[in-house]
Amino acid sequence: MPMINTGMDAAIQVTDLRVRYRTKKGSWQEAVKGLSFQVARGEVVGFLGPNGAGKSSTLKALMGFVQPSGGEAKVFGLEAGSLEAKSRMGYLPEVALYYPYLTPLETLRLYGELEGLKGKALQTEAETLLETVGLKAAMKKQNRSLSKGMLQRVGIAQSLLGNPELLVLDEVTSGLDPVGRKELRTILKDRQSKGATLFFSSHELSEVDMLCDRILLIHEGKLVEEREMHDLKDELRKYVLTYAGQNPDALLGQGWTVAQGQTFSKRFTTKAQLMAALEKVQAAGGTLVDVVAEEGSLEDYFIETVRRAA
């Protein structure tokens, strides 16, 4: 599959990446099998795939948690996992567990100090971030007393420490309630507006839909689909044209259904088809009753694409 050339400097450049793990029986299992993609600076890219597709492994390779068995991964042109690369990144792990006996504030102070932040600036930033993610009241409670959603908020806050240029978020909405998701979207959009690049995996296709510029869909360690989000939306969008007039069979071809009496409807999969039909309806003297754009289901697309790949 050809890579989309974004025409911008790459925040992430993955070329023929391979990641493998040793199983308990001692044999090797390849989780990522020659994956290549690119994420431009300032882009918001969703990384989709069914369970076990290799999403987390790819993200781990980007963070340097696992060593690629082949290919390479670069972040801002730097080797993935290098200190220089990590100093420009924020990361939210899939399962957010933080030191149970530390408070969210202490947790952020710890990570902040490792990030090179210090003193009052660190304290202020940590407090501000915790306030931003809605943990102002809980910032001095121990992590072990927090709910899963609250821990996810701690995770989000820590990933934003130091104002990173690239955010790598694994299952970003995991554990968040609808209010939390909305707040998260706001935060992430804010970061994007400030020039940050977002690369995240999620099972929540609605989040992907609302946030992403582009999606990458992988299956069994291979990239199976790479789409600009607005193109995909266009592609998935359906149009329903309803007119009143003569029976369309002779004039407009097959596929029309009787909506009510002399009113007929038809669903078109592209805008061009719709426009062509509209012209024909008008030429035939039909009266336009309604044109409805139906947003396509990303879920259906996801399932269909994975099914095809399988």
Partner: peptide
Amino acid sequence: KQRTLYPLLARPIS
């Protein structure tokens, strides 16, 4: 085991 290692290793520390 507790995966507290990830956020640590995500920092610019070796």
